[in-house]
Nucleic acid binder design. Structure first.
Lengths: 243, 243
DNA sequence: AATAGTCGTTACGATGGCAAAACGCCTTGA
DNA sequence: TCAAGGCGTTTTGCCATCGTAACGACTATT
C-alpha cells in the first residue's frame, strides 16, 4: 500500500512536490477499520474530523423527512471524504461504510495547519473541489432530465471510470459492491425500476453480470444512452505549476 | 456600488484582510454590459477567462442530445462564475445572461497569480467551493427524491435566501426574473407542471404573485413542503483565522 | 434449521410529460 | 390611438413512465 492513498490519487491528475506528498501522507497516520454498515458520521453531528478512504467503499447520503434516502456520493480508495465539513460546524450529510473499509480520520485543525504550511495544497484542493462540483452537475442533469435507463447507464459508466482511476487491475468487469436499492437511491429510482432497467440492458447485450460483477459490453452504446461524457481528457493539469 | 461585489459577498461569510480585498477588487476592473439572452460562454469553448457578476442574472446550463436543458445554477450579483473553468481547458457548461447584466471577465492566469500572491485566498475559495458543493447536494436530493411541489417550494426558498445575501432591500417579495420554463429547467420539470404547482400554491395561500414579483406568505409551511434547511447558521466562519 | 438480506417479478395506479390552443400583456411602429 | 407581433402564461385531455405493494426464490450467515 502506498504511503498516501490521497496523494497517489491526486498525482493521477496534478503534480505534487515531495514535501507536499509527505504532508498529505501525515493525514493517513491513523488508519481505522470499519465494518460494512457502520455509521461514520451522522447528519448534524458536530464536526471534528475528516477522512481519507484507504480501502473499501464509503457513501454519503441524506434521509428526507418521508424516510426516503438520497445517496450523494460513493467514495473509493484514495478519495478525500468530508470536504463539506470544512465550511460547516455540523455535518450536512451522513457517512456509512458500504463494505468493510479502512478509513483514516484526521483532525479538522490539522487540515488547516497543512493549508497554512503548504499554501499550494489549498489551491490544489480548490481545483479538486471544482472537479467534484462538475461531476455533481453532470448528475444533476442526469437526474433532472434523463430517463431511468439513461441514469443507470450513466451511473455504471461513472462508477467504472472512477474505480479505474485508483485500481489498475480493472479491465472491463468490476465489483460495484452496491445493492440495487443503493444504486436506485443514488440516481433517484426505486430498486424495482433499477432492476427492470438492468435486466433490460442485459437482454439487449449492453451489460452482463456474473456473480455480482458487472461487465460493460458495449461502451459506445452505453455512453450514447447515458449521455455520458468523460471529462478527464479536458483536465487542465498544468495550470498550477509545480513548486 | 462597492469596489468588489465578490469581496463584499465573501465578507458576509468569511473574514478578509484589506490586501485580500484589494486583490479581489482587481478582478472587477473590466466591467462589461451584456444584454438579456446573450451567450457568455458555450459548452466546449476553450477557457481563457472567468467572471464576477456585478448586476443582473446569469445562469449556467447544459443541453442534452435530445434538446432538453438542465439549468445548473442561477448566479446573482457578487457571485464568482466559472469555478469549473479552473480545472478544465474546455467549458463543461454554457453561460447566458438571464436579464440585462454587468459581468467582469478576468484572465484565468490572473486568478492563478492571485492565488500565488495571496495563498489564504486559495483556502477561502476552497471553502466557498465546498459550500457550493453542499448546496448542489441539496438540489440533488430535491431532484432525486421529492415531488414537483416540494421542488418548487425548495427552489423559491433557495432563490429568496440567496438573493437576500447580497440585496438587503429584499423583505418578503422579490423579482426572480425567471420564466416558468427556466424554473422548470432548473428543477427538472416542464413549464406546464411548474405552472400547475405555482397556481396550486397560490390557491393554498402559500405564495402570491403581483406583476412578476413573488411573495412567500407562509415560510414555515413552505420549508416543510420543500424539505428546506437553511444551512447558513451552521457555517464555520472562524476556522480559517484572519492574516 | 432458521433468519436475514438481496434479487426477481407481477399488477395496479399516481405523478408528471406532451401537444395544442387560447389568453393576456408588453413592445413596436404607423 | 390602434394594430400587429412576440413572449410568457394558462388550461385541457391523453398517456408514458415510474412508484407501490406484495410475494417468491435464492444465498449467506448463525
Amino acid at each position: 500500500m502506498p504511503d498516501s492513498c490521497f496523494a497517489e490519487q491526486l498525482t493521477r491528475h496534478l503534480r505534487l512536490t515531495n514535501a507536499e506528498q509527505a504532508a498529505l501522507a501525515r493525514l493517513e497516520e491513523n488508519p481505522r477499520k470499519v465494518k460494512r454498515g457502520a455509521m461514520i458520521q451522522r447528519v448534524n453531528d458536530p464536526i471534528t474530523e475528516l477522512f481519507v478512504l484507504r480501502q473499501g467503499r464509503v457513501m454519503s447520503f441524506v434521509i428526507l423527512p418521508d424516510g426516503s434516502r438520497q445517496i450523494l456520493r460513493v467514495y473509493f480508495p484514495g478519495d478525500f471524504i468530508g470536504s463539506a465539513s470544512t465550511i460547516y460546524t455540523r455535518a450536512p450529510e451522513s457517512l456509512v461504510a458500504v463494505s468493510d473499509s479502512v478509513i483514516c480520520p484526521f483532525d479538522k485543525h490539522a487540515l488547516r495547519r497543512l493549508l497554512e504550511e503548504h499554501p499550494r495544497v489549498a489551491a490544489l484542493l480548490f481545483l479538486l473541489s471544482n472537479a467534484e462540483r462538475v461531476s455533481m452537475t453532470d448528475r444533476l442533469a442526469s437526474l433532472g432530465r434523463t430517463s431511468a435507463k439513461a441514469r443507470v447507464a450513466a451511473f455504471l459508466l461513472d462508477m467504472f471510470h472512477r474505480l479505474r482511476v485508483t485500481d489498475d487491475s480493472i479491465e472491463d468487469s468490476f465489483d460495484l459492491k452496491l445493492t440495487q436499492e443503493e444504486i436506485g437511491d443514488s440516481i433517484g429510482l426505486t430498486s424495482v425500476h433499477v432492476n427492470r432497467m438492468i435486466r433490460q440492458m442485459e437482454q439487449e447485450g449492453l451489460i452482463s453480470r456474473t456473480n455480482g460483477r458487472f461487465r460493460l459490453l458495449d461502451m459506445e452504446r452505453l455512453e450514447d444512452i447515458g449521455h455520458y461524457t468523460n471529462r478527464h481528457k479536458d483536465m487542465d493539469l498544468d495550470w498550477l505549476p509545480v513548486g
